Amino acid sequence: MAIDQEILEVSSMFRLLMKKASQDWNRGACKMNLTFPQVQILYSLNNRGSLKVSELADALNLTSAAITGLTDKLCSLNYVERERATDDRRVVYVKITKEGIHAIDSVKEIYREMMEKMFNQLSKEDIQHLMRIFAQMLVNIDN
Rank of each mutant, 00 (worst) to 15 (best):
S11I: 03
D58G: 01
V39M: 07
L17W: 12
N26V: 03
V53Y: 00
S50G: 06
I127F: 03
V80E: 00
D105P: 02
Y79N: 02
G100P: 12
I7M: 08
M115V: 09
S76H: 06
D87L: 08
G100C: 10
I7P: 00
R27D: 03
L70H: 08
A66N: 09
Y93T: 01
K98P: 08
V53C: 02
G28K: 15
R82G: 00
R48Q: 09
I110W: 01
D58T: 05
L16F: 15
S64I: 07
A29E: 03
S76R: 09
R27S: 08
I96G: 06
V107E: 09
L51R: 09
L77E: 03
Q128F: 09
D24V: 01
I67C: 02
I101F: 15
K52D: 01
V10Y: 13
E113A: 13
Y111D: 13
V107T: 09
D87P: 01
R84S: 11
D58Y: 11
R89K: 12
K95Q: 11
T86M: 08
L16A: 14
Y79H: 07
E116V: 07
N33P: 05
K117T: 09
W25S: 09
L130C: 06
Q136C: 05
H102W: 11
K98L: 14
M137I: 13
N140I: 10
I67F: 04
E6C: 10
V39Q: 03
S50M: 08
W25A: 13
L62W: 14
I7A: 10
E109Q: 15
Q121F: 13
A65G: 11
R112C: 11
S44I: 01
V92C: 01
I101W: 10
I3Y: 08
S12V: 11
T68K: 07
D88H: 03
H102R: 15
S22G: 11
A135P: 00
A57R: 03
K108N: 15
Y43R: 07
M115N: 10
A21P: 00
I104S: 07
A66W: 05
V94P: 08
L74K: 04
T63V: 07
S22E: 09
L56T: 02
T86E: 07
L56F: 06
E116A: 12
Q121T: 14
A29G: 04
I104M: 13
Q40V: 03
Q136E: 11
E81R: 11
D58N: 08
N33T: 10
D126G: 02
Q136I: 03
M131V: 11
V139C: 06
E125K: 12
I110M: 10
D72F: 05
V10I: 14
F119C: 12
N78H: 04
I141S: 12
M13N: 15
R132W: 03
S44C: 05
I110L: 13
V39E: 03
L60I: 02
S50I: 00
T35S: 05
M114D: 01
A59L: 04
L45C: 07
I96Q: 02
L34W: 06
W25L: 12
D72A: 04
Q128W: 04
M32K: 12
V10A: 12
S54V: 01
G69W: 02
N47I: 01
A65P: 05
F36E: 10
T35V: 01
N143G: 14
Q128L: 13
V91I: 14
G28L: 14
D72L: 08
Y79A: 00
T86Q: 10
